[in-house]
Nucleic acid binder design. Structure first.
Lengths: 148, 148
DNA sequence: AGGATTTATATTGCACACAACTTAATTGTG
DNA sequence: CACAATTAAGTTGTGTGCAATATAAATCCT
């Protein structure tokens, strides 16, 4: 039992620690842009495809509205996005980048390079890691859904 | 630039998503024990070695006192740990498991098995993943330290 | 048409994370 | 010894995450 628990500890903790270490690397970089890590993820999603409903973003980032609603409000207060009720469906709110939000992308483009340095591993390894993580996430979230 | 940013997105997001998916799997299991995921990590650390200072735990879990102090207070309120000022150094507070805290370990021993099922990958793959994550975390946190 | 159900978003409450600050005890230095 | 510097833990403030609930609009059903 001891061994099993310590194995468990290594497993779950390594993921938890890596994720926090990653955001710690991003923090000073994103501070310069005046945004947080989850806010950056939202912007990345919007830079790829602008003008999406709150629900779309929730699905894509697998985040709750309880997380995204106030976050989007903060991005709005920063002048990076606009929130607009759809006339066709008054329940929906469309999120669109402002000029300032689009402009921020230029400042963000150096981030990946910095991160690659910080990670200190070849791109091939990073890509393999990413592949495993995606598979793991799929498996874990399928399990979570089925157990509910 | 587009490609670089979308690559970055895949990298950082996959880690972030995997970590949250992992805690989502633990949540219902830990609910039965009445504790949260970070509280579980603290207990795992204490089950391995009991009677440690707050600073020790901060170091081991790489968490701030701003996170651990209230968390340990909650574990205390649950009757799982005791907090005692050291007579030899009145600044230090030693955290020790209560009888109840030690007993909880028996209920926790089935957790690793459940997790392995949820992860849906062979132990060898999981272990490889863990190895990569530890290496990544080391590299990232070294970078963070050096950039400060 | 009209009321129940569903859907989209927002709000509330609690527990992290972490930066910045505070408090109190110990150590180091002249 | 006195007093500055350091160390250990706790507190405050902001921003997530997420469950549970609220609100309001659209849809379904008869």
């Amino acid at each position: 039992m001891t061994d099993e628990l310590s194995l468990d500890r290594q497993l779950c903790f390594s993921l938890y620690a890596a994720s926090r270490a990653m955001t710690a690397v991003y923090r000073p970089v994103l501070d310069e842009l005046g945004i947080t890590y989850p806010q950056y993820l939202v912007l990345l999603a919007l830079w790829e495809r602008d003008g999406r409903g709150v629900g779309d973003l929730c699905g894509e980032l697998s985040l709750d509205t309880g997380t995204l609603s106030p976050l989007l409000k903060r991005l709005g207060a920063l002048g990076l996005v606009e929130r607009q009720r759809l006339a066709s469906d008054e329940r929906r709110v469309e999120i669109r980048l402002t000029e300032r939000g689009r402009a921020l992308r230029a400042q963000a483009c150096e981030i990946p390079r910095r991160l690659a340095v910080a990670a200190g591993m070849p791109l091939a390894d990073i890509d393999e890691l990413r592949t495993i993580l995606v598979r793991l996430t799929d498996s874990l979230s399928t399990y979570t859904r089925e157990e509910t």
